[in-house]
């Protein structure tokens, strides 16, 4: 349970792109072809190691349908990383990325690390969005990019971990204020210096975000 840092993630993207499946694959290492609709927000967590430090990822999995956005928006703040997911076999999920991004930029803190994931890359034969397009979009918007498959687990770990690594680097570089929990980072007791304000104060920010 001890960790050096706790990073909060949020997974966003259109409905049906596989957000919950990615999370499940990451936390439970299994794939559920038919995952029940996510209503509101769900939650998952897993420990990873970066630079030999134990890091806990706490991941909010949001509902993709726009009518739940009033809820999901409140989770942007207080997230250090976002996984923005689209489905490579459904072009519209790619086309909607910009709006998701805008939503994130508007409601998240500016330093949030965003990983763009083109999910379902196992379904290459039905591909409707090319890898290059994904790459280019990511490049244009300053995102990290990966294609992944929650089904085959390809790149799933990598996506989560790479995001964490990027966040970690920002911390190392001093670009993120770890004492400010609204950045979605908590300093734990497991393995790093006695943090400033590493108290158990998570509620402060989550409360703040929920109207």
């Amino acid at each position: 349970m001890s960790y050096a840092y706790l990073f909060k993630y949020i997974i966003i993207g259109d409905t049906g792109v596989g957000k919950s499946c990615l999370l499940l694959q990451f936390t439970d290492k299994r794939f559920q072809p038919v995952h029940d609709l996510t209503i509101g927000v769900e939650f998952g967590a897993r420990m990873i190691t970066i630079d030999n430090k134990p890091i806990k990822l706490q991941i909010w999995d949001t509902a993709g349908q726009e009518s739940f956005r009033s809820i999901t928006r409140s989770y942007y703040r207080g997230a250090a990383g976002a996984l923005l997911v689209y489905d490579i076999t459904r072009r519209e999920t790619f086309n909607h990325l910009a709006s998701w991004l805008e939503d994130a930029r508007q409601h998240a803190n500016a330093n949030m690390t965003i990983m763009l994931i083109g999910n379902k890359c196992d379904l290459a034969h039905r591909r409707a969005v090319s890898t290059e397009e994904g790459e280019q979009f990511a490049k244009e918007h300053g995102l990290i990019f990966m294609e992944a498959s929650a089904k085959t687990a390809q790149n799933v770990e990598e996506a989560f971990i790479k995001t964490a690594a990027a966040i970690y680097k920002k911390i190392e570089d001093g670009a993120l204020d770890v004492s400010n929990e609204s950045y979605g980072i908590k300093v734990g007791y497991g393995g790093v210096q006695g943090p400033p304000g590493g108290r158990d104060g998570a509620p402060a920010q989550s409360g703040g975000c929920c109207n």
Binding site: I39, V41, I71, A204, S206, G207, C210
Partner: peptide, 9 residues
């Protein structure tokens, strides 16, 4: 800090 009660949504 659970005033939003979103957990009950």
């Amino acid at each position: 800090g659970a005033e939003s009660l979103h957990f009950a949504f």
